[in-house]
Structure formats: structure tokens, C-alpha cells
Nucleic acid binder design. Structure first.
Lengths: 126, 126
DNA sequence: TGTTTAATGCAACTTAGTTGCAAATATAAT
DNA sequence: ATTATATTTGCAACTAAGTTGCATTAAACA
């Protein structure tokens, strides 16, 4: 049970994710939406959108929470194992459409895989 | 410049890492050492030990900071690319001695790789 | 149009982690 | 052994991310 009502705030949030290709930190969203909705509302809408499978979340380098809408985000299902990339120079975070093969681990039941790559993005490599 | 003086607090901290094989969260360390040293001291000793290469740090599922001393932790150098495993049932976190091959990513300069696997550990699989 | 239930705002709170500064202590020099 | 000096620690106050409870607002559906 994710989003039940298409409120103005939900629409606003979704349009932000539709328009861009990058990931967005919650901190960034709270800041940029502070005139349009409450901090708590930002957190709760993101939570519901993720539960629905519209977006997915992950942790950045400093433990901050990020959200992104990627091509693999499908309703009611989210089982992508793509890595996330954080540019240490400009701070940009994005989903990489690359498959990371995880070897089977003995004696353990692996249920989720999170891969965070850090380095320089295309612009900052120069 | 990591540890300069072998204080009682530093010795205590190191002995904790020597004795166990698991990773330890900062929260856990602050709690278990609260009668022996200040919270700030815990944070600072861990920071210095990591700078020295005696231990290494990483983020757990909720963005919490964890530290561990693994076989690959060597003085003045720490370039292991092993995954970390967090058991969602009992909460145990550990380093896995497995190599995760990261494919080369075009147009990006990858400098660090963090892999967090979540699932059930040996004990909790039953 | 009214009723129900989900969603929001607000304020207060929790928790992880940080900072500045004075006091304490390990280590090196005398 | 004593002193000097630079590192380390404790403390208290702070910052920032994220959460909670509750009263109010507003979708959606009959």
C-alpha cells in the first residue's frame, strides 16, 4: 500500500523525478521543496513512492539517503542490482546501467546487494 | 598522522578489535565503552586508527558507521575491495573474504567501491 | 454534497556525529 | 627523575538527519 491519493505534493514530487536523470538526496529535496511542502511530507511521500516501486532508495557516501527513478523502477517490484555512482568532486549521484555480478556466498542467504562506486564523473575527469 | 600516543583508551579500543572477528558499529562501541571513555573520544580514536590503517570503516544498511579490523588491514595502506555483510535477522555485520569483480565503467574514474550485502547469516538461515 | 479515510503541517523529539576549549597525560628532552 | 611540549581526553553544547503524535486539511467515493 503506497500512494492512495494523487495530491498536489505527490504530483510535484513525481514531476521532479520524471524530469531528471540523476538521483536526489532527501536533504536536497527538503531544501528545494521547503516552500511547497513540509519536511515531514517530503519524507513520507518518498517512503510511499518507494513502497509502490515508483522510485528506489540507497545510501550515499556519508550515509545520507538518496532516491532515484531509474528504468528498472517498475510498479510493485524493484529488484535491480545496478550500482550507484557518486562523484566526489561535484557531488552528483546517479544510477549506472551496469550489471554487477555477485558471486554466490556460501553459508549465507543474500537478499539484497548495494554497490556504491565513488570517483570522478565525466565532467570532473578533465 | 594517525595514533601518536598509546593511551589506555587506544589500547582498550584495539583489544576489542583484536578479540573479535565481527565488525562493530560506532553506536555499539560508544555504548559498551561509556564507562571507560567519552563518546567524543571513541569517535576520535576510531578516526585515528583508520587513518593509520589499523581498521577500516564502512556504512551499514541504515547509514550507520561501522568499523572492522580485517586481515587486509595493514599499516598505512588499505585498499581492500571486499564486501560487507549485514544479517537482517540478528544484526551481525562482518567482512567477507570474497573478491567482487567490478567491471570497468566507461567515462568515469572509479576510486572506491563499497559493496554491502544483506540477508541471513549462517545461524539465522535455519 | 456529505462522509470517510488518506495525507499534511507543525512542533517537539530522537539520535548520530561534530566542535571548541580547558584540563590531563604520554612522550621526548634535560 | 623532572620538566617541557604536544597529543589526547572530557565535557558541554551544538548541528543535522530523520521520526512521532496529533490536530487539521483535502482527496475520493458513495
Amino acid at each position: 500500500m503506497g500512494i492512495k491519493r494523487r495530491t498536489k505534493s505527490v504530483t510535484t514530487m513525481l514531476s521532479i523525478f520524471e524530469s531528471g536523470e540523476e538521483a536526489l538526496s532527501v536533504v536536497n529535496l527538503v531544501e528545494r521543496l521547503k516552500n511547497q511542502m513540509n519536511k515531514t511530507t517530503v519524507y513520507r511521500i518518498l517512503e510511499r513512492l518507494e513502497k509502490e516501486g515508483a522510485i528506489h532508495s540507497f545510501s550515499g557516501t556519508n550515509g545520507l539517503k538518496w532516491y532515484a527513478k531509474c528504468s528498472q523502477c517498475t510498479a510493485h517490484h524493484h529488484n535491480d542490482i545496478h550500482p550507484h555512482f557518486e562523484c566526489k568532486d561535484c557531488g552528483k549521484v546517479e544510477c549506472l546501467e551496469v550489471n554487477i555480478p555477485i558471486p554466490s556466498i556460501e553459508d549465507r542467504n543474500i537478499q539484497s546487494v548495494d554497490v556504491l562506486l565513488t570517483g570522478q564523473c565525466t565532467n570532473c575527469m578533465i
